[in-house]
């Protein structure tokens, strides 16, 4: 096996994790942080948001640029399934001004969860478009908030104009079991889209 233990000498055998990236998209306040925290060890992760587009390629010497950046906190969770098999969950705000972050996250991503609030369904249109355009398999999880009207899954499917084969599930982002079910549904969907002959 390529994934042996470390040598006692401290000379570490070259060893790559199987790192699976899952994206969690959704509007502000839809429960991304809650869901990541329910199912994984949520950890701090900051990245940078460029403030200006100007001065690109201007005055650029040895990688020193005038670009101004500000840091943005992301929802980041890690689930170690086996020593060498780790799921990384990344949640970032769904607004288009954060797409620069999605572009990097989407590289090599296995799939995505679009977390939606039925009171603000339109918030998830940009994310759905984004994943459809990049051919990244995704599912929609409706976070059921107390006091929100319970739309049927089919009503939501019609409203979002989603294919009948695309899973839409109800979830409670606070519940570990429910958050697990969301991820399981995504993985099953990836198995399905990569081999439609497999029964679900």
């Amino acid at each position: 096996m390529a994934y042996g233990g470390y040598e006692a000498s401290g000379a570490v055998a070259a060893r790559r994790h199987r790192a699976i990236k899952i994206l969690l998209a959704g509007g502000f306040g839809v429960g991304k942080t809650t869901l990541v925290g329910a199912v994984s060890e949520i950890r701090p992760l900051r990245t940078e948001e460029p403030l200006t587009e100007s001065s690109k390629h201007v005055d650029s010497t040895a990688g020193v640029e005038r670009k101004t950046t500000t840091t943005v906190a992301m929802d980041f969770g890690r689930i170690t399934l086996r020593e060498d098999l780790v799921l990384y969950l990344f949640g970032t705000p769904g607004q288009e001004r954060f797409w620069f972050m999605w572009d990097e996250l989407a590289l090599g991503a296995l799939g995505a969860v679009v977390l939606a609030d039925t009171r603000r369904l339109a918030d998830c249109f940009p994310a759905i478009d984004y994943f459809e355009r990049r051919d990244i398999p995704f599912i929609v999880a409706l976070n059921v908030f107390e006091g929100s009207r319970r739309y049927s899954v089919e009503e939501v499917r019609t409203a979002l104009d989603l294919d009948p084969s695309l899973p839409i599930i109800l979830c409670d982002a606070r519940s570990k079991e429910s958050a697990k079910e969301v991820l399981i549904t995504l993985i099953e969907h990836v198995l399905y889209v990569t081999d439609p002959a497999v029964s679900r």
Partner: peptide, 8 residues
């Protein structure tokens, strides 16, 4: 080391 490709 580059990650093992894990896209769908």
């Amino acid at each position: 080391e580059a990650p093992i490709p894990m896209k769908a």
